[in-house]
């Protein structure tokens, strides 16, 4: 067998601080509000879900594709239909301008054990591209500087 190249990266591929990841995640509602096309793609979506870094997830209320409320968990007796939580390292990598291979997609992250998808995932699957793009919004701000 001849092999030109193999890449193996199980360690966090980019430098980050958990605080910076949480701060970047908090920008998502404003970034979505400025993205009319993405909001429109979610126009049939109403859901209460739990999203964010596994160390600090957020209860996110989405109505007609807009985030109408986002508050840090836990909230006493607040329920959610599905949860997508990823390690801070995963979000830091996912938000790179050129994310490293295997860290570039929400389901790549679940496959590599860096994220979990739980609960009643029907709304997540009916709006899968919406959620991929929603959670990628901080990428636009160049998370962690040049990447």
């Amino acid at each position: 067998m001849e092999s030109e190249r193999v890449r193996r990266d199980t360690d966090p591929p980019v430098q980050f601080t958990p605080e910076a990841v949480i701060a970047a995640f908090k920008e998502i509602p404003d970034l979505l509000a400025g993205d009319a096309a993405l909001t429109a793609r979610g126009r049939w979506l109403d859901v209460d879900c739990l999203l964010g870094p596994s160390t600090q997830p957020f209860h996110v209320a989405i109505r007609a594709g807009q985030i109408v409320d986002m508050i840090p968990a836990p909230v006493l007796m607040r329920s959610w239909r599905f949860a997508y939580r990823a390690t801070p390292a995963a979000f830091a990598a996912y938000w790179q301008t050129m994310p490293p291979a295997g860290w570039h997609d929400l389901l790549a992250l679940t496959k590599r054990g860096q994220a979990t998808l739980e609960g009643e995932i029907h709304p997540f699957m009916t709006h899968l591209q919406y959620f991929k793009d929603l959670l990628a919004l901080p990428r636009r701000n160049g998370f962690g500087g040049a990447s």
Binding site: M1, E2, E4, R5, V6, R7, G102, H104, D105
Partner: peptide, 24 residues
Amino acid sequence: YDFSCTPEDTLRTAAGIPGAKATV
């Protein structure tokens, strides 16, 4: 960037086929 059929999957397969040429 294929996380479905990963480079590791292909290289593992190629490793078991003498003379197969594998490229990432």
